[in-house]
Amino acid sequence: MVLLGQGRHVRRKAPWWCRWFRPLLGSDEGMSTAEYAIGTVAAAALAALLYTVITGDSVVSKLTSLIERALVVTF
């Protein structure tokens, strides 16, 4: 709602996507313990995957060569 002055309010119409998705989502009172557990496992799996990629030989060698090139630059 928007306050127009002197206590008058105007209710703005929700965007089309909000009106379309709201019935599909239903009521969300918060996550349950099972949802927290699944979210935690998914976050840990993503972190493990990113760690594996970052510590892989190709990424380490590319970063090392980039840093070496940056340190050898002549002005």
Results as ranks from 00 to 15, higher is better:
residue 67 I to P: 00
residue 2 V to Y: 02
residue 67 I to E: 03
residue 6 Q to Y: 05
residue 66 L to H: 05
residue 34 A to L: 15
residue 7 G to I: 03
residue 52 T to Q: 12
residue 50 L to T: 11
residue 18 C to Q: 14
residue 23 P to I: 05
residue 16 W to G: 03
residue 44 A to V: 13
residue 47 A to G: 06
residue 38 I to F: 03
residue 68 E to S: 12
residue 69 R to K: 13
residue 1 M to S: 10
residue 74 T to P: 00
residue 61 S to I: 04
residue 61 S to L: 08
residue 5 G to I: 06
residue 31 M to D: 05
residue 51 Y to L: 12
residue 12 R to Q: 10
residue 28 D to A: 04
residue 70 A to I: 01
residue 38 I to K: 14
residue 21 F to D: 09
residue 25 L to M: 14
residue 63 L to Y: 03
residue 55 T to H: 08
residue 67 I to A: 13
residue 31 M to Y: 00
residue 55 T to E: 03
residue 40 T to N: 08
residue 17 W to D: 07
residue 70 A to N: 04
residue 57 D to H: 03
residue 5 G to M: 06
residue 24 L to Q: 09
residue 48 A to R: 07
residue 46 L to D: 15
residue 3 L to W: 12
residue 74 T to M: 05
residue 55 T to V: 02
residue 28 D to N: 08
residue 41 V to F: 04
residue 32 S to P: 01
residue 75 F to D: 12
residue 54 I to C: 07
residue 12 R to Y: 03
residue 33 T to W: 11
residue 28 D to M: 01
residue 24 L to W: 11
residue 17 W to C: 01
residue 73 V to E: 07
residue 40 T to F: 03
residue 4 L to V: 06
residue 44 A to I: 14
residue 41 V to C: 02
residue 54 I to L: 15
residue 14 A to L: 09
residue 64 T to L: 11
residue 5 G to Q: 11
residue 71 L to A: 10
residue 30 G to Q: 01
residue 32 S to E: 09
residue 41 V to M: 09
residue 28 D to S: 04
residue 62 K to R: 13
residue 31 M to P: 02
residue 36 Y to P: 00
residue 41 V to G: 00
residue 2 V to F: 04
residue 16 W to Y: 00
residue 26 G to P: 00
residue 13 K to A: 06
residue 43 A to Q: 14
residue 73 V to Q: 14
residue 23 P to Q: 08
residue 5 G to P: 00
residue 1 M to G: 05
residue 27 S to T: 04
residue 53 V to T: 09
residue 36 Y to S: 03
residue 73 V to K: 06
residue 18 C to W: 12
residue 51 Y to E: 06
residue 42 A to C: 08
residue 5 G to K: 13
residue 21 F to M: 15
residue 3 L to A: 11
residue 74 T to N: 09
residue 40 T to D: 10
residue 23 P to T: 07
residue 64 T to Y: 12
residue 67 I to L: 14
residue 14 A to T: 02
residue 38 I to M: 11
residue 39 G to C: 09
residue 44 A to C: 06
residue 20 W to G: 03
residue 41 V to Q: 14
residue 10 V to R: 10
residue 42 A to Q: 15
residue 66 L to E: 04
residue 54 I to M: 13
residue 70 A to M: 08
residue 30 G to D: 00
residue 7 G to S: 03
residue 24 L to S: 12
residue 62 K to C: 10
residue 5 G to T: 07
residue 55 T to F: 06
residue 26 G to D: 04
residue 5 G to F: 05
residue 16 W to I: 01
residue 53 V to Q: 08
residue 6 Q to W: 01
residue 17 W to F: 08
residue 8 R to P: 00
